[in-house]
Simulated assay, not measured.
Amino acid sequence: MTTTAADLSAYAGFALQDAAIPELPHHYRGKVRENYSLPDGRRIIIATDRLSAFDRILCAVPLKGQVLTQIARHWFERTADICPNHVIEYPDPNVLVCKGLTIMPVEVVVRDYLAGTTSTAILTMYKAGRREMYGHRFPDGMKPNQKLPQPIITPTTKAFDAGHDEELTAERILGEGLLTEAQWSRVSDYALKLFARGQAMAAERGLILCDTKYEFGFDEHGEIILADEIHTPDSSRYWMAASYRARFEAGEPPESFDKDFVRRWVVERCDPYNDPIPAIPPEVTLDAARIYISVFEAITGQPFPLPPTDRPVLERIRANLARFF
């Protein structure tokens, strides 16, 4: 029996909504992660189970934080030979201790298909009639979700303080001094090699890694380090390889992970931008948990390690982080 077929009812009240630990210094609360900065420059990042959408927190999905932390761990460990990353240790399934970095003001997005729905997505721009994007020229007559001749880098500004990403080109990055030519060359090389590794490993699992976002930073020596997360379903677009060709030829969207399960449930019941969000019942969040677990298992090829339920998640995390107090 796969993990996703397991009875998750024991986890109905097991979601980690908040991970504030007063004994840890310099607390910063993100949408879904709690961040702490230690005096020696290390950072502690705790992934909660909060689910953010429509500019608000909708609910907490049991095990979501562990799923995303462990998917990123899977990829960090399998790409460390390509690019140094910020990982120091994982003292708990939801927790990463990492190097403190100066985050690069450029986010590196690698794409291999004409896809996406956001304002910075190349498909959105293409449908609006643009053919020059991110310093690349696209021919007329392309179809949605069509494979590109080769993967390309479409950089954006790093949106700090809840700002919006903006389109960049290599010329603008260098011209505005966001990065030096040597830094941009190194980052581009890292990104394309990481993406190639990700695509090859995803293909072994019957998946297409369509596009992804990388975040890099500089350590105290100026070395470029991979940060944040890598190849998770929150930072990447995955499609099912077996059905891609037939669906593309039929003009249908590719089959993908159903990450919007809770969002659709909410939209069917209210205007999420203007109305109060109705209480989301446990059976909905547990179904969402099963989806996240299925994503972990599809990407890694490993059964998801269900944690014990003998004590609350935050109590377990506090015990595993006690040596940092």
Rank of each mutant, 00 (worst) to 15 (best):
G163I: 07
F324G: 03
P91E: 09
L24I: 12
T2Q: 14
L226G: 04
T69D: 15
D234E: 13
R311H: 09
E132R: 02
R245S: 07
M201G: 01
E315G: 12
R290A: 08
A20E: 13
F216V: 06
G217C: 04
T118S: 14
H27Q: 09
L207A: 11
H221S: 15
S119C: 02
E107I: 05
S188E: 00
R29P: 05
E268I: 02
I21T: 07
L16G: 10
M142L: 04
T117R: 04
R130P: 00
L96M: 15
I153Y: 00
I57E: 14
S243P: 06
M104E: 10
M125A: 15
I173F: 13
E171A: 05
D81T: 12
R186S: 03
R78C: 14
R50E: 09
F218G: 03
V266P: 04
I173D: 11
V106F: 09
L16Q: 11
V284Q: 06
L174E: 14
I82S: 05
A128H: 03
L101R: 07
P39E: 11
R33W: 15
A170N: 03
R237K: 11
Q70F: 11
V313W: 04
F248A: 02
V95Y: 02
L51M: 10
G100L: 06
M125D: 07
E204D: 15
L114D: 01
Y36H: 09
K147Y: 03
G206I: 05
P155I: 05
K31R: 14
I224F: 08
K64I: 03
T4L: 08
F261E: 05
P281H: 13
L286T: 09
R205P: 03
Y292N: 10
G198E: 08
A128V: 01
F195D: 02
V295Q: 12
P91D: 08
D81I: 06
R137S: 12
E176R: 03
R73E: 12
A53H: 04
